[in-house]
Design a protein around this nucleic acid. Sequence first.
DNA 1: CGAATTGTTGACTTAGTCAATCAAGATAGT
DNA 2: ACTATCTTGATTGACTAAGTCAACAATTCG
Lengths: 149, 149
Amino acid sequence: MSISQKCQYALRATFELAKHVGEGPVRIADIAKTQAIPIRFLEVILNQLKQGGFVESRRGSTGGYVLTHSPATLTVGEIIRFIEGPLSPVQCIAGSTGDQCPLHGDCAFLPMWEKVKDALSDVYDSTTFEDLVEQERVRRKEHVLDYSI
Amino acid sequence: MSISQKCQYALRATFELAKHVGEGPVRIADIAKTQAIPIRFLEVILNQLKQGGFVESRRGSTGGYVLTHSPATLTVGEIIRFIEGPLSPVQCIAGSTGDQCPLHGDCAFLPMWEKVKDALSDVYDSTTFEDLVEQERVRRKEHVLDYSI
DNA sequence: CGAATTGTTGACTTAGTCAATCAAGATAGT
DNA sequence: ACTATCTTGATTGACTAAGTCAACAATTCG
């Protein structure tokens, strides 16, 4: 039901990189500050994202992190699945792990869990980081207008 | 994202009571056996469900637990919310807890979390225990047919 | 009544995960 | 060479979930 803090950090970090796509590497410290993420923890997370091929790093004084995918095709679902595993609300559905469930697939709730999983996929896999960046841009614009009135 | 083991037990226990509605109290031991729930833990859970007014208990040699609501109106969502709290995927949305989020509501992901929450509600609040009992009945019938062929 | 059966209660234990931190090292730019 | 940056693995502390236990109270039925 809930997304771990780590995963939320990973999403926010990816989002921050998406915002600066095409502008060269973004420093860990900058991401940490803008997105309010503990810097040490962010190091761990970015490293994990690198293992997964979502980001690349450049060392040295002009170093930092860069998104490897286009924000237009990268979805929230991909990041969540990478950090958290399958989107299933319960273990039984997660993988074909041979049902360690003592009810042997004779569980009345299975169809419902499937429906939930599909509903989650619908939302997460249809949200790209480009969408998010665009949405924020619109919101900021409205904000400015609010102040100027 | 995931439903706790405890909550799954609570759902299965409620489901078991729904199956035997109108037949008098069901013993803890029977629920535990049929639904493969550790009996000591089930005691804790049933007690909690009783505090919430979902079940009633009767002591003595013919004692056991009875559902207080009609399975036709009792939804999975009610049980989940009672055991787990709000259906939000993240804390920020859970309650109006004054946003301890350091981004002060300026988070690009908020609309998505809302969508997820709504999607979850859609599924969980539209599934009644009568539905589940009925579905199982249908499935068992098919099973019998399978064997007789 | 009284013995057996059942639920009641709250404290307790255990195990595992999450979040975060630290420090020493490697690399690239200037 | 120097400095800013990323790299890596080990480690910690806190917290929560899951499960357990034992003494107790109420009810039923012979």
